[in-house]
Amino acid sequence: MVVQSAAEAITYPAVGAELDIEGVSHAFDIDGATLPVLDNVNLSIAPGEFVALLGPSGCGKSTLLRLVAGLEKPRTGALREDEVRITGPHPSRVVVFQDPTLFPWRTVWDNVALGLEAQGILKAQRHRVDAVIDLVGLSSFRNAYPHQLSGGMAQRVALARALVNDPKILVLDEPLGKLDSLTRIAMQSELVALWQRKGFTTLLVTHDVEEALVLANRVIVLSDRPARIKADIAVARPYPRHRGDPYLAELRKQILGLLGLEATW
C-alpha cells in the first residue's frame, strides 16, 4: 500500500489548477418556461486531480462543463480557478467536445495551431504545435484535412488542439463517446498517460461507468435534472488499471445502483 500511495503522489505535479464550484445553480428559459438544470452544486477539485462526472442523459453534466469553460455564466453561485473567479473562456481551461469540431478548412497542423494563433503567439511558438502533434502520434498527417481522418484520428487532433495551450484544467465532454470500442479503449490509456505526464487537472463528463472508473481518481455521480451531487466516490487504485479488477467491479455495481440501474448488473 505504501508503494501505491507513492505512485499516486507522482501523478499530482503542480501544473494543474484547483477548481472550486460553489453553490452553482443554473437554468434555461425555453418558450417562456424556466427549466432548472443545476441545483446547488458544490465541488472542490484539487490541482492535478482526474474527476469524472457521471449522470443520466440530459441531467446537466454538459451545462456544468460549459460553466467551467466560461462559455456561460451561472444564475447563482460562483466557479473559481485557483481562487480566481471564472468570468469567461480562457485558454487555461480548454474543452474537448464529443464531436471533434475540427475546422474543415484547416489542415491538422493549422487546427492544432488555432489556440496559439488566437492568442497571437503562434509565430514564436510553432515548435509547440509540432511537439503536440508528435505527442498524439499524427506526425504523418499534419498536412491532411479533417475529412481525410478517421473518427479516432480526428479526436486525437482535437485533443492536441487543446493540449497545445498547456491547459491547467482539461475539460472533456464525452470525448470518446462516438468512437468504436477498440479505438476507445486505446485512447483511454493514452489519455491517462497524457494526464500523468502533463499533470493538468481533468474534468471528464461521461455516461460510461467503466470509463469513469478506469480513468478517474474521483467519480461524482449526479442526479436527474436538475443535477445535484448524489455521491462523491474516490477510486483509490493505481494506474494502469485493469477492467476486471474486483475492486472496480464492486464500485461499478454501487454506482449503477445510485443511477437506478442495479437490475442490469
Binding site: P89, F97, F103, W105, A118, N165
Partner: peptide, 24 residues
C-alpha cells in the same frame, strides 16, 4: 460549436469573424 471551440482557445471577436465565420 466552432465559435465555442475558438472562444475556449482564447479567440477575440475579430478572430471569430475573420478566422471562423468567413472561412466557414
Amino acid at each position: 460549436a466552432y465559435y465555442d471551440v475558438a472562444r475556449t482557445l482564447g479567440a477575440r471577436p475579430s478572430f471569430l469573424v475573420l478566422k471562423v465565420a468567413i472561412p466557414a
